[in-house]
Design a protein around this nucleic acid. Structure first.
Lengths: 129, 129
DNA sequence: TTAAACCTTCCCTTAATGGGAAGGTCAATA
DNA sequence: TATTGACCTTCCCATTAAGGGAAGGTTTAA
């Protein structure tokens, strides 16, 4: 399979496939005589794993480790759990930050008439805070 | 005031002050003979506004507009409200995405023993999805 | 007069995704 | 057979927000 075909099957942009390779997340593809990257069904499988990990918000670094653990049939599940738990904490932090922003913003927007007049509690709110 | 002093007073890194200037978010500072940027109390005020807007997650583009509206005493508050509302929608989208990730991840982490054995529902979950 | 504490500009790095250029390859069709 | 279009390659650039660090000029105080 050429890169275009894996890309379609795994639903991962070819640019990203090359990038994952350069980051060492997936192994270097073998090449055809002309230098084209060659892939197999198994590569589709790996790319789908990477894609799902991305969808869960894992960083490239985490994904590199996760793929490696995934392939290692002797891994201790504790290592996987540790990565996931750390990620959960980061997501919770982001979630809380966004929640705080929304709390403030919703209050301000609610109290702003949003008409042709200049009075604006939103600007006041940002200005004073 | 030199940049270091405004930086302290507004609690905004000097690197960022220069950047805001280069982005047109704040006006170009006047310079001393030696080329040092010179600031006044009012600049501190503006920088604090920018800082608070950043804390609410507004993008640089939005902040540029917000500062301009803030300074324009004839602004229609509708314009401000529109920017804020759009931002709220984006934050809500991010919040929902994070919530979805957390839902999945928490389930997976809960079901993973996290010991020395290789069985790992987290990896299975990412792999199959 | 020298040293420290500032200031200046310029380039680099982070993270993830992708656009686009310049050029090589392959397959089908005229 | 020649050409065309679709595909592939690498390389550089942009995005976003924040800042590190270098190389060099300025100010001030000891």
């Amino acid at each position: 399979m050429n890169i275009g075909e894996v890309s379609k099957q795994a639903d991962v942009n070819s640019k990203m496939i090359r990038r994952y390779e350069s980051l060492g997340i997936i192994p270097k593809a073998t090449r055809s005589e002309a230098g084209y990257r060659q892939y197999t069904e198994n590569d589709v499988h790996v790319l789908k794993f990477v894609k799902h990990a991305r969808e869960m918000g894992f960083s490239m670094k985490d994904i590199k480790q996760l793929v490696s653990l995934w392939k290692n049939k002797n891994r201790p599940s504790a290592q996987v759990k540790s990565i996931a738990t750390k990620h959960i904490l980061e997501l919770e932090k982001k979630r809380d930050e966004i929640a705080a922003m929304l709390l403030t913003l919703n209050q301000l927007v609610k109290s702003c008439k949003g008409d042709n007049r200049p009075e604006c509690p939103i600007l006041d709110g940002i200005g004073c805070h």
